[in-house]
Nucleic acid binder design. Sequence first.
DNA 1: TTTAGCACTCTTTTCTCCTGAGTGCTAAAC
DNA 2: GTTTAGCACTCAGGAGAAAAGAGTGCTAAA
Lengths: 348, 348
Amino acid sequence: MELSERKKQILKAVVEHYIESAEPVGSKLLAQELGVSSATVRNEFAELCDLGFLEQPHTSAGRVPSPSGYRLYVNELMERRAVSPEEARGIDETLRGKLAGMSGAMTNAGQLVSSIVNYPAYSVTSGNAALTVERFELVPVDETSFITVVMTGDHNVKSQLQRSALPFDNTRLSDLKHLLNTHFTGKSRAEMGAHLMSVSEQLSPELFLVLSKTVEYAAGVLDEAGRRDVETTGASRILKMPEYRDVDRAHELMTFLVDNKENLPVPEGDAKLQILIGPENVDQALRDTSVVVASYDIGDGMRGLVGVVGPTRMDYATVTARLSYFAESLTKMFGKNGLPPAETEEKA
Amino acid sequence: MELSERKKQILKAVVEHYIESAEPVGSKLLAQELGVSSATVRNEFAELCDLGFLEQPHTSAGRVPSPSGYRLYVNELMERRAVSPEEARGIDETLRGKLAGMSGAMTNAGQLVSSIVNYPAYSVTSGNAALTVERFELVPVDETSFITVVMTGDHNVKSQLQRSALPFDNTRLSDLKHLLNTHFTGKSRAEMGAHLMSVSEQLSPELFLVLSKTVEYAAGVLDEAGRRDVETTGASRILKMPEYRDVDRAHELMTFLVDNKENLPVPEGDAKLQILIGPENVDQALRDTSVVVASYDIGDGMRGLVGVVGPTRMDYATVTARLSYFAESLTKMFGKNGLPPAETEEKA
DNA sequence: TTTAGCACTCTTTTCTCCTGAGTGCTAAAC
DNA sequence: GTTTAGCACTCAGGAGAAAAGAGTGCTAAA
């Protein structure tokens, strides 16, 4: 059954007032706004309650949106506005700040989002598990050490200084390099391991040791690149929200955000933006929070994810607008000049 | 004036009970423990108050240690115990877990410490600002791109794929490499910049462009390595402590730990371990917290720092024991096989 | 120097009462 | 058939008041 226009108007007003104030919304306030009597509003309230869109914290309190109320609001009632010019400027500046600080402090998308929307946020970089090594390079340094350079299929380059017990001349090094480039490129982790076994008997033990250390390093690089990485930031922001005045509740959510970040939701299918409201979250710990998560293109068909976590009383309009804008900006940035997505580590 | 033996005993008992329970300690409890009457204890209490080692939250409450009470406790009264075998095992396991997960999730020392002591913790890796490039290598990939490999003075290696507008043959590449290795090694950031200017006119614009991109990359690598990096973790643990039942207090400390982490204390001189109690902290925001910070050797005369932040009512005995053990273990680890200290990023 | 005794102080807890916001329902008005 | 005015009712939250409890300081005696 379709809601009457006035019911929609009332539901919308309740949601927006509640988002604003975190206090149950009474009939008087809305009566004033709609130009009808409070009794009329109360009648509508009662019906919206029966329909499950509103709830009453207790008998003599105003109304509060139920999860399905929020859902209806988000689906139909909310004005899906774009970011205002000022907002856009703020976000652009944040992004520029990130770029400037890129060689400086490591920033991640979640951190930026959190500061943009003022809720805890998270970012997911879903690694490319099918990545393989495209090319090995070995650069001599001195008799007993050389630099291993690994170029992966996505044209990232990692390198490491490698020491070896036995002295290396250049021919030996190029033999090793040849071996690596003919047998260990274009292979998955497992295949590399298997191949390592199969060549073990054709080589001198010393050479094999060096080879296997190199292959292990490459495998580590692939692991690193293939790993799904979730980072959360800004968790402490919830402490300013009335629903988390209770320290235990706050603690529960904060530890979840830190310890269970892998279980934070990812959008279904290839949706650009998804909103999960309260009990729509599968995870028990998120049952009375809402999550807004957006995806952006990294290039090469890969996607990154940024999400926002907050109380169900979240400012959906602002969050979706800003998050969409942010994700689109990121997509554009990666499209333009292929910026570095990941953080990695090196061995000496 | 030296405290009487019994006063010391009482002060110690007050501190330890208060650390345990977070409740003011009354005379009755101690009377029982010391085998004297509560009135005697009260007389001692009064004197310890006059001396500034104890405080009274209000007239009819028990006693609480003052900052100088804690200080005396830490300096003279506390049993500086070593970690128990079980504790040692736990810490060893945590460290092993870190090693196992090294190629996996990026862990940092602060994270480990926080889980070991159950307080918020931080780690500082003080970058080597005097670092220079020891060697450049350029590895051709195809006509328009090559891999830049930068080896720094501390024998770390970083690399990046570099594209260029103009095609590169091998002679040109080795010219460039020669240029880099003769003019841009062993130089500070600023010197590299200056040198770049001075050679700008002797080169073709195209070549200069490539050169400057390479030098910029190297400068970025040095920046990265030279940067002092502070990470905090486990801030949410304070929510379980009675002194932070008040959300606003908790929020204040947590935002400090996130936003002002650079201002967290570092040990004076080359102390292995330093304890800062309440107002001994210069930073206003830490005036009623305590910090225990330890240093460990990374090798090459470099040091890393790990610290613990908590209420002044901190379990100093346990924290110092575990933190010392942890720092010593790290020192040993780095001494043995020179593990990777830093995290960095790469460009594609 | 220690201890018993006692009056006193101050927090914390528990009740009770009160207020105010908001409701549901009924009957009249439009 | 809606809408509205009116009214009794409910319930959370705050203000006091009272009681309980923990602990103190001080005095005088051991």
